[in-house]
Design a protein around this nucleic acid. Structure first.
Lengths: 343, 343
DNA sequence: AATAAAAATTAAAACGTTTCAATAAATGGC
DNA sequence: GCCATTTATTGAAACGTTTTAATTTTTATT
């Protein structure tokens, strides 16, 4: 299938390339009849002007940045993207988003795609599995392509905007301990997620700074997929009798927490009377749940905004500028899914 | 600020453009010392090879399509995008998404952006306000750029994948009537949305085919923003005494339904005992609500999939192909937020 | 030290448009 | 019908890379 170019169209229409170009760009210098004829030929040939070539001459004037998130359907990420979008818009940039769906290969593909298509820079929520290769990030660095990570990636110096997961969980657990909870459990996330490990660590640390003592049975592997979390929660409780129940569950994230609450409802366990539930992320849909979720709130919009800020500063600077690393504070928000025991 | 090109780098590094190119493309034909030196110069100059020019020569080999949705934070749209992504991936295409956030101007900007950046085609959920201009769509047609709309747009012949909103609501209302409901009300969406009018129409039509009679007070303008819907619902009930309450509310969409349920909880109105609630869309978070929402389920993944299918078929066809219009069926799903009265 | 082979570099053509100055064609005024 | 405008069209240069074949430099072999 031969590639068809403006030249081809010109030849067949019997005019010069310049005239075709004028038609494509809706210049009003073309005689209507000529125009119509050209249009017809274009249609016949199914001619699609190559955007690439069009932009080469003048350089596209539209400014845009990309953001690669991990999951298009998890509100946390779309909120971050929205934060980025708001800031970017104020600076005249469009934002386009793509989701890696937790697939490292796909992330690489997307980063290449963006950097190659005259998108001025990218914000990346990187998939960091154990020792995942990061040559694609090095490649971006090599061509001085601006990017900002939403998570630290070992082995590379880059702009990062992140939150301190460890500290966040620690705060939550400490709160529980101070509220008189003694049987606290962590429902851990999917083993493949880098956050899972961090959160387990934060959970464990909280104990070392308290009078309670940590033991491994306090960590239960649950995942974050809703259906799976629901099932595993049911299972977890099946093997326990009432007095073995924890008094509080610190969940991996809000989505998991929602699943846990669904399961507990089925088991007739009352929240927060019987068990306190703590989420993580603070997604919109957990906030409007009938039992609004106590959670660790990550400043999603701010994450996006700050990342976009750094990114655009880099894009617009003619010379290389200092790498930045900002760690944002989370806020522990007590709502109705948790309860204080010692009063 | 002078634009800096590969030529500039070559001159300063004292080598030819070809060598610079080889470095950029990680060819292993460059002597390490030369390479390092060039890298240094590149960094000094903050040289960013223009993707546009790079792609011109060989034509980028990565295939990608775009999807422009209306709201990045409404799960309905991200589900559609996910459906598109799944199909596209199977065909070797990446998907990038952008949100117009219900801003017609922004939609235009994005469609231009995509078509200009060598994205092979777009799926567009168009903003159709009364008589909105659609020159941007005509422009796409002119350049034979493949696109698929997720909603009919008056005045243009184009590929469309949509659902029949009117029929969908009608089905729901009929179900309620057959279940013995007599006091049915529609909580309408934001006046600016094209769906609002359609759904009102569907609601009204259902009555003409029944023994009940429609009157205007059955349509209540509520919106779809959560906070606003919550507030307006409270207000609606404030002026009514118990026996004036409707027995069923047909909501504009699931998000609104969620807000309505929150308000009713506050008012101590039981669902479904006192009032049945019907949603629309079937978003994930309404399904996992403690009172799972009865709703009109749109086949979100399928919408995306079919749109991507048509799009890619058009992209890959060397010649113009017949315009398609597919209307997908919705499914009325009875869960626990509604109840049958007449038994 | 000469030669052959291998490695590194260069120079020019190519990619497919847009732009713009130059030219040609059409129109209007007389 | 002729000249002066105005309108329409053309042709060549330009955009910033990549790609190759050709050349130069380096290395290895004798």
């Amino acid at each position: 299938m031969k590639k068809i170019t403006i030249e081809e169209v010109a030849k067949i229409a019997g005019v010069s390339k310049g005239t075709i170009s004028a038609v494509i760009n809706a210049k009003n210098t073309v005689k209507p009849e000529t125009r119509d004829h050209i249009l017809e030929v274009m249609k016949d040939l199914n001619f699609r002007p190559k955007g690439v070539a069009r932009n080469l001459k003048n350089g596209a004037k539209d400014k845009s940045i990309g953001i690669i998130i991990k999951d298009l359907n998890y509100p946390f990420y779309t909120s971050v993207a929205t934060g980025a979008r708001e800031y970017a818009k104020s600076k005249g940039y469009s934002v386009i988003v793509a989701s890696s769906e937790n697939d490292h290969e796909y992330e690489k593909k997307l980063s290449h795609l963006f950097s190659t298509k005259d998108i001025k820079g990218i914000i990346i929520a990187p998939i960091v599995e154990g020792a995942s290769e990061i040559e694609h990030l090095f490649k971006l660095k090599m061509i001085n392509y601006p990017f900002v990570l939403l998570e630290d990636v070992k082995g590379i110096q880059a702009n990062v905007v992140a939150i301190d997961n460890i500290r966040a969980i620690k705060k939550a657990v400490k709160y529980l301990i101070e509220s008189g909870h003694t049987k606290i459990v962590h429902f851990a996330g999917p083993p493949s997620s880098s956050h899972t490990q961090e959160r387990i660590e934060g959970f464990r640390h909280a104990f070392s700074e308290s009078t309670l003592v940590f033991n491994k049975s306090m960590i239960v592997s649950i995942g974050s997929d809703h259906e799976e979390s629901y099932r595993k929660t049911l299972e977890y409780f099946k093997h326990k009798n009432r007095k073995e129940y924890p008094t509080a569950i610190v969940c991996f994230n809000d989505l998991q927490a929602l699943a846990v609450m669904t399961a507990l409802k089925e088991l007739n366990i009352k929240i927060p009377e019987d068990i306190s539930i703590i989420g993580n992320d603070d997604i919109f849909y957990a906030k409007i749940y009938p039992v609004p979720l106590t959670t660790i709130s990550a400043p999603q919009h701010e994450i996006g905004r700050r990342a976009a800020e750094i990114l655009i500063r880099n894009i617009e600077s003619p010379k290389f500028i200092q790498i930045e690393r900002v760690v944002l504070e989370t806020e522990f928000i007590v709502r109705e899914s948790s309860k204080v025991l010692n009063r």
